[in-house]
Design a protein around this nucleic acid. Sequence first.
DNA 1: TTCTTATTTTACCGATCAGCTAATTAGCCA
DNA 2: TGGCTAATTAGCTGATCGGTAAAATAAGAA
Lengths: 112, 112
Amino acid sequence: MDQLSLTFHALSDPTRRAILMRLASGDATVNELAEPFDLRLPTVSKHLKVLQEASLVSQTREAQRRHCHLEAKALKEVADWVWSYRTHWEESFDRLNAFLGDIEAAGKASKN
Amino acid sequence: MDQLSLTFHALSDPTRRAILMRLASGDATVNELAEPFDLRLPTVSKHLKVLQEASLVSQTREAQRRHCHLEAKALKEVADWVWSYRTHWEESFDRLNAFLGDIEAAGKASKN
DNA sequence: TTCTTATTTTACCGATCAGCTAATTAGCCA
DNA sequence: TGGCTAATTAGCTGATCGGTAAAATAAGAA
């Protein structure tokens, strides 16, 4: 599978996005990451595996503990991909603005 | 399912991303979209349904034809989400720069 | 009305997904 | 060694996925 598909798939799960958000505030062990969820440890472990395969998270070992770290580079690749569509949402924004402009103009015209 | 999960899931398939890229260059019918792929029409039709449920594509009917249109607003929501992690990839960029700076400094020092 | 074109719906298949429990690995400590 | 803690692996389930063929729907054309 290509990198972008792996990344988008990893991000398509709310639990995995929550894990990323948690890691944005600092590294954490698997147990710490699992704590806020109503999920068994193997489930969280599996989610972490998906995030690692998408290069969104890395782990370093210290004794039995695994310290998980957010790898933002993969997120930047998503940002770059989606950014290439920027002109399209700016276009619709322009069309909306033009439409609202027309309404305003019509409103002013009706007052004269 | 929440909007972001729908959108990320829709984007996790390369065929669907290719469809979006094609639509970025202009509206197209279902048959036109299917043409470059080695896929049956129902398959493409299903992909389009996923994209529509994620609000990434809209359709308007003209006779039998369905004209598909890229809806970039959903992409902007992805951009906004991923943009909130900006500081993290800038951080690692800074760390890389600092590292390269150190190497450069060490190189210059060794020449003296 | 029948034919053709455009597209969706239905029903099926094998693969993958997210969750679970139970068992296993790995490393610390007594 | 044996036990405790941290985490993964193995194996199961039901749901969803991406693909198919075949049938149904919709609307213009003959």
